[in-house]
């Protein structure tokens, strides 16, 4: 259960992370705003409430793992890792710049909390399966959280992984689909329809929850239920691409285009 105090804390965190996303992308003049903004509450919930982890001990065996499937949303990922103390804040200046480990898409760097290299879409759930299977073999109890984009799950490999997780009963996987209904070329239901999405996962042997992906209480309560499941879990989190900045919401201009300084100032003005 979430106290009002904790809820307010999480809401404040989400606001700070959204500001950092705008700043990182504007500074690099490169990066994906929309899909970063839609996943903020999911990552903040995981790193600030749900997951067992310790930034001072990034290789702690019993830590819960997070695997960033939608690798283009590194701004939200790096901002949260920096906020938790994995990444020094000044390193965020290097995002998408030569010499920095903060690549446009995640490059594995366990010491900095980046568990897996991802970003070419579709790899993440399979890698999560390999990790989760390993934990089972070793008798370890930690959870494996994976965040997929809704565009990403159009990749065939995702469904190969879906079958695999069912076969090996990987109930230590709790995955999310950031269901913002948009992808690079436009609306997902125009590009390649995914609905009805929940029955697809159910048919593959997963336990499925459908939630509002910007509602902390729903996210946290659902994950608590998911942890009790004897199946791999997929949480379909309905979100808004560009969430938090009025003129970026549901406008796919902000899929992969950085704001200029003036636009960034307007955006930040909405995030105070």
């Amino acid at each position: 259960m979430l106290t009002q105090e904790k809820l307010n804390f999480l809401k404040d965190k989400a606001k700070e992370i959204r500001q950092e996303i705008i700043i990182m992308i504007t500074r690099a003049a490169s990066g994906h705003v929309g899909g970063s903004m839609s996943a903020v509450e999911i990552l903040v919930s995981l790193y600030h409430h749900i997951m067992k982890h310790d930034s001072q001990n990034p290789k702690w065996t019993e830590r819960d793992r997070f695997i960033m499937g939608k690798g283009h949303a590194t701004p939200v990922y790096y901002a949260v890792l920096a906020d938790c103390g994995y990444i020094p804040k000044e390193d965020l200046l290097g995002f998408r710049r030569p010499g920095s480990y903060l690549q446009g898409h995640p490059k594995q760097y366990t010491e900095k909390g980046i568990e897996v290299s991802t970003g070419t879409l579709g790899l993440s759930l399979s890698t999560t399966c390999g990790m989760a299977l390993s934990a089972k073999l070793k008798g370890e109890k930690q959870n494996y959280f994976c965040l997929c984009g809704d565009g990403e799950i159009q990749e065939g490999q995702i469904w190969e992984a879906a079958m695999f997780a069912n076969k090996y009963k990987l109930n230590n996987i709790i995955a999310f689909v950031d269901r913002n209904y948009m992808q690079s070329d436009g609306y997902s239901e125009d590009i390649m329809p995914l609905d009805p999405l929940e029955p697809k996962w159910e048919a593959f042997g997963w336990e499925v929850f459908s939630i509002d992906g910007h509602d902390f209480e729903q996210i946290i309560n659902t994950v608590e239920k998911a942890m009790l499941s004897d199946k791999p879990v997929m949480i379909v989190a309905r979100t808004i691409k560009g969430k938090g900045v009025s003129f970026m919401e549901n406008d796919n201009t902000w899929h992969g285009s950085p704001p200029n300084l003036e636009t960034a100032m307007r955006a930040l003005g909405e995030l105070v």
């Binding site: 897996v116 790899l123 390999g130």
Partner: peptide
């Protein structure tokens, strides 16, 4: 010994995941 079925892409990424956890796949 594990079998992914006819799913080579999945196999390679699963192997990567197992190596992260200390196995030599």
């Amino acid at each position: 010994h594990f079998n992914t079925g006819v799913a080579e892409q999945n196999m390679l990424s699963v192997a990567a995941g197992m190596s992260i956890e200390g196995f030599i796949p």
